[in-house]
Design a protein around this nucleic acid. Structure first.
Lengths: 178, 178
DNA sequence: ATGATAATGTTTCATATGAAACGAATGTCA
DNA sequence: TGACATTCGTTTCATATGAAACATTATCAT
């Protein structure tokens, strides 16, 4: 289907000038979506390991606890919104947390399709233990950036995020980036 | 196992002062690993969709092509290094691309366990078509940041990434962050 | 050489993921 | 009221993922 005249395929490596080069000198390592993905994944891995080892929690589970821990009782739909996870993931995370006795379900007064979720006393205790760990790990992993650059990064990400949201990009997660 | 005195659980919402509050006022939305993950995933989704719709490629496949498109023939191990994907993913992506006629395998002169991979003529043609699309999409998605902020973000990510690499964080991908 | 160890890439297997189908409940509107 | 459409959350199912086991080939030490 596609075909191309392949002229004298001489391959030149990362030279300052790149005219006529294949891909016009495209370099994956400098491609922002790729960098963003790699960095986010690395960081995620570190957190996933810490949560799993010390608390037996997955990241979706931790996220649910984080939201419930500060947001009071709320239906699953609210967790979906605040968590950027899809409803299937939230449903499963909640079920797992229920099984562990960290989250409980109460009937929703106005809607019997739903239920109000909240941390149990034990769930709250675990949450109180995770927060300092999460903060410490965040601090450790982002130590190269000073406080200012860390704040700057957060700002840039927030702006980018808001923009992506406006572009009609559907919600939910994905396993990999560009 | 964990238990806590739950005193008069009055819940206060995002106040400037947060002493004594549960989780000491932890807010997932302000947690850098979380933000990083959400933003990266959103961006990835947009790229994944574009690649799939217009070229029938997954992101791992695109990454392999991107590396081969600018790096000349190389063994799979080199792709693993430059791509931050694990070898299983690379193996599968290469197999898929071979099946589509976009990548070919040549015997490695010095090592019969390996093979030298390269784009076919058609693969190269497709690559030449994707690069401008990828650049345009990157530009569109990061339009809110000016050129300077975009560069700044890249710098911050690179620094962060280098630091994460030094911390002994294992390589490879993960599906979710903290 | 020769045996032990390491590296390359594939396959296997158990888990994670989300789109779509679903049952139940609610909302809408004539 | 009584269809009909919509929303909530779960379940189903097909796919994606990577750790571990694997076959093959290289490398190293003797």
């Amino acid at each position: 289907m596609f075909h191309m005249k392949r002229m004298s395929t001489v391959r030149v490596h990362h030279p300052p000038s790149r005219a006529g080069e294949p891909g016009s000198g495209f370099r994956l390592e400098e491609f922002l979506p790729y960098r963003l993905s790699v960095t986010a994944n690395r960081m995620s891995r570190a957190f996933a390991r810490a949560y799993a080892e010390r608390f037996g929690l997955s990241i979706p589970e931790w996220r649910v606890m984080a939201v419930l821990g500060t947001g009071g009782p709320m239906p699953a739909s609210a967790i979906v919104e605040r968590t950027a996870m899809d409803k299937v993931k939230v449903s499963r995370a909640v079920a797992a947390l229920e099984g562990k006795g960290l989250v409980l379900r109460r009937p929703h007064p106005n809607d019997r399709r739903s239920a109000l979720l909240d941390l149990t006393a034990e769930g709250r205790a675990v949450f109180e233990q995770i927060v300092p760990l999460a903060r410490a790990l965040e601090a450790e992993l982002t130590a190269v950036l000073g406080p200012e650059d860390r704040a700057l990064l957060a700002t840039l990400l927030a702006r980018l995020d808001a923009h992506l949201g406006k572009l009609g990009t559907p919600e939910r997660d994905v396993g990999d980036p560009g």
